[in-house]
Simulated assay, not measured.
Amino acid sequence: MNKIIFETERLLIREIEVTDFDNLFSICSNEELMQFVGDGILSKELTQKWIEVSIENYASKGFGMSAVIHKSNNLFIGYCGIVFSKAINDYELIYAIKKEYWGKGLATEVAARMVQYGFEKLKFKTIYASIDPANIASEKILLKIGFREIYTKHDEAGYPTIYYSRTDEVII
């Protein structure tokens, strides 16, 4: 189906599909990529369930976790999206990019555009993000795209987590 959500200069963001399972599982089962993600490594069953929930979210809410495709080679390089977080009872930005694409500004590129999409298309007034305090790379991305730290608390699993927010305000 390949329903495109938006494009950036180097990336194509589209709805996740059942056929993305192997690519998504290669990220969700990678210890280094998932070390800072609250849910940690996902099993095959949980990865499949996440795809199913995401497809349902597109149908019922109009958004969810999305595939990140690099335009230069048409490869699935990560995921990004806005999802409902039970921990904050609101909508949260999520993203992960395969390690071989780190350090090229791609996570910043897709995260910034996803936030813009959240404000312009989905009409959110505030978008949240949460990170492990050791995830310095994600902290830099969030600060670069206009998020501000709001508090630190322990997540559902008992791990310290820094929460950020960004509002849809025009800064003059």
Rank of each mutant, 00 (worst) to 15 (best):
M1H: 06
M1C: 05
M1F: 01
M1V: 04
M1W: 02
N2L: 15
N2G: 08
N2R: 15
K3N: 12
I4H: 02
I4Y: 11
I4G: 03
I4F: 03
I5L: 07
E9I: 03
R10Y: 08
L11P: 01
L12P: 00
L12M: 15
I13S: 05
I13V: 15
E17R: 09
E17D: 07
V18L: 13
T19P: 05
D20Q: 07
F21T: 05
F21P: 01
D22P: 06
D22Q: 13
D22K: 15
D22H: 12
N23S: 12
N23A: 11
N23G: 09
L24Y: 15
I27K: 10
I27C: 14
C28A: 04
S29M: 06
E31V: 03
E31S: 11
E31N: 01
M34C: 10
F36G: 04
G38W: 12
D39M: 05
D39K: 08
G40L: 02
L42I: 01
E45D: 12
E45L: 11
L46S: 12
L46A: 15
L46R: 03
K49D: 08
K49S: 06
W50F: 03
E52K: 10
V53K: 15
S54R: 00
S54F: 00
S54Y: 03
S54I: 05
E56P: 06
N57M: 11
Y58N: 06
A59C: 14
